[in-house]
Amino acid sequence: MNYGPLVFLAAFAALAASWFGFVLTPHLQIGHLQQTNTVPSGVSYPVARSGLAQQGLQVYRANGCAYCHSQQVAQTGTLFDLVLTNPGTNQASTVAAIQSINPRLSQPEVLEIIGKVPVHLLTMVSKSTAEAAAKTVNATGANAVPWIVPIGPDIQRGWGSRRTVAEDFLFDYPVLPGSQRIGPDLSNVGVRQPDPGWHLRHLYAPASVVPGSTMPPYPFLFEKKKVGRVPSPSALPLSGIATVEDGYEVIPKPEALALAEYLVSLQAYAPLFNAPLSVALGKPTSPTETNSISISGGDKAPSDISMP
């Protein structure tokens, strides 16, 4: 019997299956994503980048920035902080409750911190620990809430406060998540370096702002010209190892300005339903900025951390 046509059809079906699975289905799922709301503030997310930043994305694409920089923050798990938001009126029992959940705190220390709410009573504990501790504290009339804290090496490195999700790229074309980390991840470079001027100096002479940087310089994004009667206001303020001959100044070209604007627009930290993290209400920043006093969890056993 001639099995040829049968094998051909089966092979066709196998190949078609992968097309349905990895092209059509993701398109139906991700391709129909809509703008969503941040949780709990309910702000629309994401908003389209400014026109200049969109031009900057094209400069980023044309010069292949994605061959060295990823835009995908990884998250290995989620832990919880316990945050005291209201010490209540029954101070003595609140202090006792806090000491019972975090025995490392002495009474004066507790008295000091409960005056500075919101304050972290426990950090990096498991969900059950945080919830049990919240119950203990709240029984005294105080109010303590567990906060969601995404964890992982990328997040500890300060590259983001949560993992990157599909929504972060909703309005981008092309999407450039990158495949290499020859340079640092840029998902949130606009949070780390919000000044476009910093990015311009960095593009012109990377090692002048990041000592030891291995990034090549991008002189073709700038124009070197003789200083006129009045120095140009847009000239790059150069110092240190980035210098230019006397009588010359370095002016960023429109591409450089657009690229810097795009880099500043890279801020993918909004808390979302599918990538939750807790932030102080009314202040859309990372939870660590609420209060600098943070006390490591007293009852935290290493096994509580789901980080491998």
């Binding site: 990895f22 092209v23 993701p26 398109h27 799922q29 991700i30 391709g31 129909h32 994503l33 599909a166 929504e167 790229f169 909703l170 309005f171 981008d172 074309y173 092309p174 999407v175 998540p177």
Partner: peptide, 15 residues
């Protein structure tokens, strides 16, 4: 799907 009629957002990257 990536260049002529690009799909939305990360669906491009999956393709």
């Amino acid at each position: 799907l990536t260049s002529v009629y690009p799909v939305r957002g990360m669906a491009q990257a999956v393709v």
